[in-house]
Structures are given as structure tokens and as C-alpha cells.
Design a protein around this nucleic acid. Structure first.
Length: 319
DNA sequence: TTCGCATGAGAAA
DNA sequence: TTCTCCTGCGAAT
């Protein structure tokens, strides 16, 4: 999925263009029709992200919770405010949607493949407004000027505020939604070191620390030069803390750029190139068999809890 | 045109 | 651990 940075970007886009207005809420696909009717016509008062969960609070008192899972994405149409002032807006946030670049005309450039979608001018697409829903749109949130279409989410439900709070309570700290990063870090260290499970698995456990997915997991562990198979209990406190601190650095960068660029060794020019060339972005993720960028040893891929785990068998060691 | 895979995670066994 | 949700891309056919 879309790891945590993407969901924060979605929350920001919704905040910029749909929050504070009464919205037409519908379910073109039909699977969310009854719940959509409850929200329809109400004002979206806030949109926020915790880990990979998106929460949209409505004036009716209802909270829309969305989790994109592996396939989900939001497609935006109509007027869009660039998330970064001066830059183009993103038409699609979530799972890869490269093909949309073909659909949407000429003066677009392809967005970073990692994030899918395309970058276009603002407004970023032509044609009648609102556009006809394309494919299975679970939820459409529409103002007079902006449409957000949700497709393929693994979770999409209406909760009351207490239920939404209960979801958040089950999550570990998210650096982008915590006010006290130091205290949150201490809690993550405690949770990481409380179990004998492999640290590679613990970083993916959303109840330990929220928002990390398979790419950030692999990259954080490489950056720490830590063997992912090290049991959590054997990770020294300072190493666990460094993992959190590193996550707290990478996440804001990912939110700002929309790209999971995890290499701190790049020159500014190389960094610019890496924003559009995925083969330059990562230390180990997706690089099975290719030489480690530090020592040249072939990067290894193996299964960990049914997910692909990438690591350098030489650089990443046990404490 | 078909098939396998993917940035995820809850349920079932 | 395995299944399932369910979407789109890209490699293979």
C-alpha cells in the first residue's frame, strides 16, 4: 500500500479542498450506499491520518474511516490545491495508477511510479464536472468544485467518535500525529523490546509503531544496519530508539514529496533524479540480486510473515 | 488475453 | 500459517 506518508497526503488534500463544505456523498458502486446516505449533505469538518487509517469527521457526528489496504486509492477531479505550493497537484493518491497518465491528456508528466497517478496542471483534468465515475467507486465525496473518488479500499465504514478513538488506541505511535515525539519514541522502544518476534516483523506491526509498510521497513532496517531477523528483545534500546528517530525523519519527507526516497547519500541532483526514477530510491527494497550500494554483496530477498523482506546479508548485522 | 504480483491486514484454521 | 478481500500493472502467452 500506500504507506503512512500517502495517507497523510490524502488527509491534507481533503483538508485543502473538501473540508469545511457540505458534501454530496454517494456510492456509485453501491456497496457503501446506505452509509453514504447518512453522510450526504453534511459538512466534512476534518480529515486526519493516523498510521494508515484515514478519519473524516462529519457535522452529523459520524466519522468515516478508510483504510486503503493493498489496492486502494483516491482519485481527485476538478479543482485541486497543490500540496506543495507552486507545484502541481496529484490526481491520484494511493496504489499505482500509472495508466491514468495516458487517459488524461497531454501536458501531464508521469508522477513518481512509486506513488502512481500523474501530475498535471491545476485543475488537472478536463471534461464535464463532475466526471462520470470510472470503474468501481466505493465512495464519492463531492463539493461544487472538487470530487474525490475512493476505489478498492480494504476498509470503509462509518463510526461514531468513540469507535474511531478505539481504532486509534489500538495503533502504535505515528510520528506525524504525535505531539510529544520523545514520549512516543520511548513507548515504541518499549514495545519493540517487549517481544521475541523478529524486529522486521515488529516494525510492520501497526500496534507497535504506525504507518510503516514493507518499503519503509526494509529501508529503515538497512539504514540502521540491523539484521531484520534480530529478535525485538535483543535490539539494544539505543538502536530501537534510532529506528524511531529515523522513521520520524523519513515520514515528514515522504509526506512532503509523496515519494519514499530513503537514500541520504544522494547529491541534490541525484535526489531530483530519484524522485522520478524508482531504481535509484532505495537501499535494498526491490533490489534482490543487485549489489548492495555499500558493500556490493547481492541483496537478499526472503519471506518474513508472508511478505517479501529485502536485506543486505553483509551490512545488516545483529547487535 | 491471461496470469502473477504488489506499498495490507483481518479472519479463519 | 493460509485464505480472502479486490484493483491494476506489466510480463508472459
Amino acid at each position: 500500500m500506500p504507506e503512512g506518508h500517502t495517507v497523510h497526503r490524502i488527509a491534507r488534500q481533503l483538508t485543502l479542498d473538501l473540508v469545511g463544505r457540505p458534501l454530496a456523498v454517494s456510492s456509485p458502486q453501491g456497496r457503501f450506499a446506505a452509509a453514504a446516505a447518512r453522510l450526504d449533505g453534511h459538512v466534512m469538518e476534518s480529515a486526519s491520518a493516523v498510521g494508515k487509517h484515514l478519519f473524516c469527521a462529519f457535522s452529523s457526528g459520524d466519522v468515516l474511516r478508510v483504510h486503503l489496504g493493498l489496492y486502494g486509492a483516491w482519485d481527485f477531479h476538478g479543482r485541486l490545491t497543490p500540496l506543495t505550493p507552486g507545484e502541481a497537484a496529484w490526481g491520484s493518491l494511493g496504489a499505482p495508477r500509472l495508466r491514468r497518465a495516458v487517459r488524461m491528456g497531454e501536458d501531464e508528466r508521469e508522477s513518481p511510479a512509486d506513488e502512481g497517478g500523474l501530475v498535471a496542471g491545476v485543475p488537472h483534468d478536463d471534461g464535464p464536472f463532475p466526471p462520470e465515475p470510472v470503474g468501481a467507486v466505493r465512495v464519492r465525496l463531492a463539493s461544487n468544485t472538487t470530487v474525490a473518488d475512493l476505489r478498492g479500499p480494504s476498509a470503509c465504514e462509518v463510526l461514531d467518535p468513540d469507535e474511531a478513538a478505539a481504532v486509534v488506541a489500538r495503533l502504535g505511535p505515528d510520528p506525524a500525529s504525535e505531539t510529544d515525539l520523545d514520549a512516543a519514541g520511548a513507548e515504541v522502544v518499549r514495545r519493540l523490546r517487549a517481544r521475541g518476534v523478529a524486529v522486521g516483523q515488529l516494525l510492520m506491526d501497526q500496534s507497535v509503531v504506525a504507518g510503516i509498510g514493507n518499503i519503509y521497513r526494509a529501508e529503515l532496517l538497512f539504514r540502521a544496519r540491523l539484521d531484520p531477523w534480530t529478535p525485538g528483545r535483543q535490539v539494544p534500546a539505543e538502536v530501537a530508539r534510532a529506528l524511531w528517530d529515523d522513521w520520524a525523519r523519513l515520514l515528514p519527507d515522504g509526506i512532503a514529496t509523496g515519494v519514499m526516497l530513503t537514500r541520504e547519500d544522494l547529491t541534490p541532483d541525484e535526489r531530483r533524479a530519484a524522485l522520478t526514477d524508482r531504481t535509484l530510491r532505495h537501499w535494498v527494497y526491490g533490489r534482490a540480486g543487485e549489489p548492495c550500494r555499500v558493500c556490493g554483496t547481492p541483496v537478499v530477498v526472503e519471506d518474513m510473515a508472508a511478505r517479501k523482506l529485502y536485506r543486505c546479508p553483509r551490512c545488516q548485522t545483529r547487535p
